[in-house]
Every structure is written in structure tokens, then in C-alpha cells.
Design a protein around this nucleic acid. Structure first.
Lengths: 120, 120
DNA sequence: CTGTATCCATGTGGATACTG
DNA sequence: CAGTATCCACATGGATACAG
């Protein structure tokens, strides 16, 4: 399959939509943390060091709207909310792992190229 | 391998750097166009419909600096410049194809989830 | 604890004009 | 043809304050 089977400007271009989603700073980090099981909002907030409450909420809302993450609010006081990957969300892990594997194997070479470019 | 083997805030986190690169609007489109062989600047400009000269230049410069694309300027008048994927650049095609395959198979379900979320 | 609302600094990217 | 330089509108995201 070619990389560009779809018009990248059409709203329904799957590649474009996916890249828009995983391209932002936090989405992949949150998905990665949820790989091993459900986590509470506060736990995510601690583990994704540096994320603001605003961006964590925004990221989780987007993932939930996309059907990648399930949000469960327990009717307790104080409130407890857990987030976990859906089956669809878990199915995204494999492609992400492939990408991470590429990065791990090749970013050294990329960095070397960057250093050469900077020196020149 | 876990998705988060590296500190995502460290400069040398491969995953973060790769996602920063492919997350932008144009990089993947340009790489995809170069999959079938070298192209001139003007040809890329036409094929990546909607891209501004500024962003095309910026994207190509970044890809070149990362060692993913090779730039060849021919000493002619008028000038002719060709861009092509390096071996490193071509090695990125497989992971991208995996991602595109996931998107093609699953974005329908994602869209359905979005529709449900919008309706609610 | 789990958010929402608001303000504001910063970065991104498009349009335009100009150059070798 | 293949860029560079500049201006500017807009989106992104952090900080802060507040609420259920």
C-alpha cells in the first residue's frame, strides 16, 4: 500500500487524522502509561511529569472521544476516575511499538546527521 | 519493549524526537511522495497541494538535516534541485506503512466513536 | 480528587514581496 | 527555478484561580 492512498486534505483521510492525534506531545505518553492497566487521573498526572492538568484532561477527552480510552467515574467522595485502553486503543500499541523500535535503532544515526548539519 | 523506555523529556529520547518529526502536517506527505523516486522542488510543490513554499523548504531542510533526504543541486540555469530519500529515509517507510495500515483499518471505528461522542 | 474557566506568552504557519 | 525575508493572524499550551 502506498503511503498516500488518500487525499491528505480530505477530512476522512485516515492517515492524516491518526498523525494529528499521535503527533501531539502527550497522547502517546498517556497511551504508553495505560499499556499495563487502568490508572487514575492523579496517577497519570504524576507519571506524565510536566503535563498540566489542562492538557491531561484535554488529551484524555480526545482519546475517550476517539474510542481509544475508557473513562470510568466511581460515585464516591472524594471522586475517583479510572482510565484504561479499550480494545481499539490496545490495537494501536503494535504500530506504536514498531515506530518506537525504528526510533531506538535509528535515532543515533539521525542525531549524527543533525550534528553534521549543525557543524556545517 | 515498552513504549516509554526513555524519559520523554530528555533531548535524546528517540520516540519523542521521531514523533516530533512525523507529527507535523507535511513531513509524512513529502516522504510518501519521495517513495517512488527523486522529485524536484517545483514538482513537490505541485504534488503536495496546499503547502506553502516556506513550509516545503522548511520541511525539506529538516529532513535533510536528519539524514532522511538527500538534496542535489545541479549547477544549471535555471537552477534544478532534486530531493530523494536516503537509505535511512527509506527505512522509515516500513513503520509508516504499519501506521497507515492501522489507520486504514481502524479509523472507521474511531470516526464512529467520534460521532457518538459528538451526538452525546 | 477531578476537574473547569480564564488569561496570556509563545510558537506555527500562511501570504506576500523580493533575490540569485 | 528555487529559494529567502518579513509581517501577521491564529492556535497551542502553561499558569492560575475556582468548583463539584
Amino acid at each position: 500500500m502506498a503511503l498516500l492512498d488518500y487525499d491528505p486534505y480530505a477530512r476522512d483521510c485516515p492517515s492524516r487524522q491518526l498523525l494529528d492525534r499521535i503527533g501531539d506531545r502527550w497522547t502517546v505518553l498517556v497511551v504508553g502509561l495505560l499499556e499495563d492497566g487502568p490508572l487514575r487521573f492523579s496517577e497519570l498526572s504524576r507519571r506524565v511529569d510536566g503535563i498540566s492538568q489542562k492538557m491531561l484532561t484535554q488529551t484524555l477527552r480526545a482519546l475517550e472521544a476517539d474510542g481509544l480510552v475508557l473513562r470510568t467515574a466511581f460515585p464516591e467522595i472524594p471522586p475517583r476516575v479510572e482510565y484504561e485502553l479499550t480494545a481499539l486503543g490496545r490495537s494501536l500499541l503494535d504500530p506504536l511499538h514498531v515506530l518506537v523500535a525504528w526510533a531506538t535503532e535509528n535515532m543515533g544515526e539521525v542525531q549524527a546527521a543533525r550534528d553534521r548539519a549543525t557543524a556545517a
